[in-house]
Amino acid sequence: MDGFRVKFIRGLGVLGLSASVAWVLASAIRARLPNYITGLLTVVAINSVTALGWNLVSGFTGQFNLGHAGFMAAGGYTSAILMIRLKWPFPVSFICGAAFAGFLGFLVGFPSLRLVGDYLAIVTLGFQYIILAVLNNTTPLTGGGLGLAGVPFRTHLPTATLTVVVTLWLLSNLVRSKQGRCFVAVKEDEIAAQSVGINTTYYKVLAFIISSMLAGLAGSLLGHFMMYLHPDIFNYLKTIESVSMVILGGLGSLTGSIVGALCITLVPEVFRNLATFVAGFGLMRASDFLRRGWMVFYALLFVVMMLARPRGLMGGRELTWEGVRSFAARLVTLRGVRGWPSSKSET
């Protein structure tokens, strides 16, 4: 038992150490770098939490969730309303937002996850529309279509980064436990999973609830970052954003989700800044095209990733130092385009 206790304490130590490093780094960035960069990194952190949540239910458990933004809205609004109307302290509202989103996850997930096939995708998509309709029509409480202004600013870069670190630690523990293996078994083959005694409905609902809670956390971070909430923030495209991050980083790769969040958040900024830069030389058309070009690039990403690298940029692996080195080597030799589909592969 002593050896096991040592391992446990070592695990907590890893968490403590990485949390402290992240906090110090994030505080330094916040103190030294321009607000623009700090803000951008905060968004990356928020998106990482969202993407991690989506990855757990869809990448690991194989259940396609298209209502992720609906759960973000639930968390964001709950936390904001508790702080504004009831004057609850931030940590409590923050946790309550996540808990409420998780509860909704249970309500939606329990009936729909008993069904086989892709029904979950459509039920969750429907759920998102229902949430938006409710938010739009409960003006006294949520501000409705006018939005909810005056959400207290609480999401500093260190707070957001800390959330990412803790989430990543918990999830990487979870996927390396029996629960995580059962999630993957459900994705691989539900009937086989049942045959080895795995209660597939239980694990699907569990993954769904945890994922909804993470969406709720992220939604509440977002609200306390933008200091404003509006139903349209949490539309279908917000869900699709998480999907794009996860497929870029790899379905079933936790560090991949963070890499994905980083790319999907920063690359459009690069496009945007480039467009402004080009416009400075009077090349208005090129500038305009660059600004919009991201949209086509973004949409193509889904199709191309699924055809050429269905397991994500990192091939479904986790990010390790060794992996970074071999990826760099691959970039140098330009072997990345190898997987491009050819007409020969059709039958």
Partner: peptide, 8 residues
């Protein structure tokens, strides 16, 4: 993929 096509 089908979501990607619709976005595209």
């Amino acid at each position: 993929t089908s979501i990607g096509v619709s976005l595209l």
